[in-house]
Design a protein around this nucleic acid. Structure first.
Length: 410
DNA sequence: AAGTTTTTCAACCGCATCCCA
DNA sequence: TTGGGATGCGGTTGAAAAACT
């Protein structure tokens, strides 16, 4: 385990690659492919270890690299993805074609971190620096109770979120105003922080950025403040539709989904489609399978804050998607949580509330992308960002806006 | 113009994980 | 089941370039 054995061998060159070495490596790989990297240096006539050859090829020589400065859209995307994934550079790079993890990591450390700090945003937590300071103060004052709180935090997740709030009056979630039900914050924090416990820079408080419109959204995630259930909009009406959606979108957050795949079954949320009125439904993203309650399925006349999907839109959507609404009646499809997480909609939910206003066709300089009171700022250029585009591909014109809002927690 | 400081980024290092015998 | 090689990842380093004095 550990260091590549060939690195111990004598007479291997280190440091910067010469043009001649690059040429040898390019010629070899374009002709034969890399195959086993440990054999590449010998076959290519290089005094390097295979690991060094691999790195050179992946980060610098392979032909599909974009190179050049990062666009404003790319920077925004990196920030957004970092808020969700933390320092998972390879996963971030997977969403940016032609960019390497090393390149993105360097950009983050040399440029983006600085810009965020200048705008008063903590690059590690993506929270306002002032909030981070407050958190520190609160943590310091509450340090005596910390251990016991964490215990109950875990336990309560397996009971219910409502109980979580009621039983833990000192929990930070109780500080949130009434419009901001605790579930989504708890939920997102939960999967983000559980995603990689070894991470040194994980967005512990991502939920602070994720507020959602209640009943005012066309898409996104909403939280029913009465039931604490998380809702997912719009509504795929069948598992086939969901599968299409998944197939047409990249695996945006595979590591997060893996976290849930490896979680105990009792911890796995599921998405279920209602078997009642498919034209006027919604479905809930439940944090517990046994928490399913058809009574909480929405209809257009309910007065709660859950998301309501109008029959007209659903029918239209189904038509465009080539699905027969009636064919799914009577079904009660369970969609795997990891599939949900791999849809573009979770990402869509991460768009800030100003996305509408920002797509106003105004040009903007890259420096203007970092606004004082927002974690990040969407590009003001009219074209959608890549993942938005992916989402739009799926639902086309039915995507009127990307409404998940930020900043309700002020 | 020269020296110093800061920034950038290619490459390295060590560890984790996967795979296979 | 285990051990070792191969691969991938994230943190770090340090030389080169750029910016500053």
């Amino acid at each position: 385990m550990g260091r590549h054995s060939s690195c111990y061998k004598q007479k291997l060159r280190k440091g910067l690659w010469s043009p001649e070495e690059d040429d040898k490596l390019i010629k070899h790989i374009t002709k034969h492919g890399h195959g086993c990297w440990s054999s590449v240096p010998k076959l290519a006539g290089l005094q390097r270890c295979g690991k060094s050859c691999r790195l050179r090829w992946i980060n610098y020589l392979r032909p599909d690299l974009k190179r050049g400065t990062f666009s404003a859209q790319e920077e925004n995307m990196i920030i957004e993805l970092h808020a969700v994934l933390g320092n998972k550079w390879s996963q971030i790079a997977a969403q940016l074609p032609g960019r390497t993890d090393n390149e993105i990591k360097n950009l983050w450390n040399s440029s983006i971190k600085k810009k965020l700090r200048q705008k008063g945003i903590d690059p590690n937590t993506h929270k306002l620096l002032s909030e981070v300071e407050n958190d520190k103060d609160q943590k310091a004052s509450a340090s005596n109770n910390k251990a016991s709180e964490q215990d109950s935090y875990e336990l309560n997740y397996e009971t219910s979120n409502q109980e979580l709030v009621e039983e833990k009056p000192n929990h930070p979630y109780t500080l949130i105003d009434n419009l901001t039900a605790p579930t989504h914050e708890f939920f997102l924090n939960r999967f983000v922080s559980s995603h990689d416990q070894a991470s040194t820079s994980k967005p512990q408080d991502l939920g602070n950025y994720l507020s959602f419109d209640y009943g005012r959204s066309d898409i996104g995630l909403t939280v029913n403040q009465n039931t604490s259930n998380l809702f997912y909009n719009p509504v795929p009406k069948s598992s086939e539709m969901m599968s299409e959606l998944i197939a047409s979108s990249p695996a945006i957050i595979p590591s997060i989904s893996n976290t849930f795949l490896s979680s105990p079954s009792s911890m796995k949320p599921s998405i279920s489609l209602p078997d009642s009125d498919p034209q006027m439904g919604s479905f809930h993203l439940l944090n517990r399978l046994q928490n399913w309650d058809t009574n909480t399925l929405t209809n257009s006349n309910t007065s709660d804050d859950s998301f309501r999907w109008g029959a007209q839109d659903v029918g239209k959507l189904e038509k465009d998607q080539g699905h027969d609404i009636h064919s799914v009646q009577g079904q009660h499809d369970n969609i795997k949580w990891n599939e949900y997480l791999q849809t573009p909609f979770l990402h869509s939910a991460l768009q800030n509330q100003n996305s509408q206003e920002l797509y106003n066709g105004q040009d903007t300089k890259p420096e203007t992308q970092f606004m004082a009171n927002l974690p990040w700022h969407q590009s003001q250029q009219p074209q959608p960002q890549p993942m938005q585009a992916a989402a739009t591909d799926v639902y086309g014109k039915h995507f009127h806006r990307l409404p998940a809002t930020f900043g309700q927690f002020s």
